[in-house]
C-alpha cells in the first residue's frame, strides 16, 4: 500500500498528488513514468512522473480526471492509501548537450513537460516554453513554468488567458522570427504532438515527443503499448516513452488509443454514479 502524502487541485479537473514511494523516488528521472492501481480490483494505469523528492521519498503525479480510474484516484484524500505504485519505468528524457530548447506542453501534458523544462533550465540551457490550454479555467502550473523558462508563452484556444491560439501558432511565429532551437520537446494530446511534429519537420527541427499509449505491465511483457516508429514496431514502455516525433506513426496510435472507448465510458459512468451515491449518503 502506498500513502498519499498530499493532494492539491491545480484546476477543476487536474489534481496533483504526492505519493510516498521511496524506492521509486530514489531512481526517478524526468520523462519516466509509474503504473498504479487505486484499489485491489482496479486497472493498471501509467502516469508520467511530474516531480520527485529523493530525500523525503515522495513522487508527484499530476492527472486529469478523464475516466473511471482517475476519478477513483481523485476521490482519495491525503493520508489515504492506494494499492500499487511501481516504477520508475521507461527511459529518462535525454537533455544532455542541449543548449536551446522549445518545451511545449498541452493541457495536463504541461505537468510532464515541466520537470524537463526545469532540468534543462537548471543545466544552463535556454528554455522557451509554450503551454496551451482550452481556456483559462484549465490553466495549470503557470508560475512554475514561467520561472523555469527564459521565455514563457501561454496560449488558450479561446483567448481567455495568455494569447489566443494554438501552441503551433506560437512555435511557428518564434521560428519565423529567427529563433533557432536545437530541439523541440512536445508533450500533450496526440493531436497536438502530431501537428507540432508536422510543423517542426517543415522547419527541420529535431522533435522529441512523449507517448502514453494503452499499456498493462509497463515492463515489455504485454506489447499492448506498441507503436510504429520509423517503420519499426517498438514498445513505448521499454523503448520509450520518448521518441523522435518525426518518425512516430501518430494516426496508428490515435486509432489504437480509441480501442476501449465504449468500455471506458461505461466504467466511468459506473464510477461516477458510485461516487455520487457515496456523497449523497455521506
Amino acid at each position: 500500500m502506498f500513502r498519499i502524502i498530499s493532494k492539491t487541485a491545480l484546476c477543476d479537473a487536474v489534481i496533483k498528488m504526492e505519493i510516498e514511494a521511496p524506492l521509486v523516488a530514489r531512481k526517478a528521472e524526468a520523462g519516466q513514468f509509474i503504473i498504479l492501481r487505486v484499489n485491489d480490483d482496479g486497472e493498471r494505469i501509467p502516469l508520467t512522473i511530474a516531480d520527485f523528492d529523493r530525500e523525503s521519498g515522495s513522487v508527484t503525479i499530476i492527472f486529469q480526471t478523464v475516466g473511471a480510474t482517475t476519478r477513483l484516484l481523485a476521490a482519495k484524500n491525503a493520508g489515504e492509501y492506494i494499492s500499487d505504485f511501481v516504477g520508475p519505468l521507461g527511459k529518462a528524457t535525454e537533455t544532455e548537450g542541449l543548449r536551446k530548447v522549445a518545451v511545449i506542453g498541452g493541457g495536463v501534458g504541461s505537468a510532464i513537460a515541466l520537470p524537463i523544462a526545469k532540468k534543462l533550465h537548471k543545466s544552463g540551457a535556454t528554455v522557451h516554453s509554450i503551454v496551451g490550454f482550452r481556456s483559462e479555467s484549465l490553466v495549470i502550473l503557470r508560475d512554475e513554468f514561467a520561472s523555469a523558462s527564459d521565455a514563457f508563452f501561454l496560449m488558450t484556444d479561446d483567448g481567455s488567458a495568455g494569447e489566443k491560439g494554438l501552441v503551433t501558432d506560437k512555435l511557428r511565429a518564434l521560428t519565423e522570427s529567427g529563433e533557432k532551437y536545437d530541439e523541440v520537446i512536445a508533450i500533450g494530446p496526440l493531436m497536438m504532438m502530431k501537428f507540432v511534429c508536422k510543423l517542426t519537420k517543415e522547419f527541420g527541427i529535431k522533435t522529441v515527443v512523449s507517448m502514453n499509449p494503452i499499456m498493462i505491465d509497463g515492463t515489455g511483457m504485454c506489447g499492448g503499448c506498441r507503436l510504429t516508429v520509423g517503420g519499426k514496431t517498438v514498445f513505448a514502455c521499454v523503448d520509450g516513452p520518448d521518441f523522435d516525433g518525426h518518425l512516430v506513426d501518430f494516426d496508428e496510435v490515435i486509432k489504437r488509443n480509441s480501442m476501449y472507448r465504449d468500455f471506458e465510458k461505461r466504467c466511468d459512468e459506473k464510477v461516477c454514479n458510485l461516487l455520487k451515491r457515496g456523497e449523497d449518503n455521506g
Partner: peptide, 20 residues
Amino acid sequence: ENLKGVYSANEFLTRINLMG
C-alpha cells in the same frame, strides 16, 4: 499487426487472468 484487435497472447491472457 498493430491494428486494434491484434493481441500478443501475453497481453490477452494477462488482461483475463491477472486483471480478471
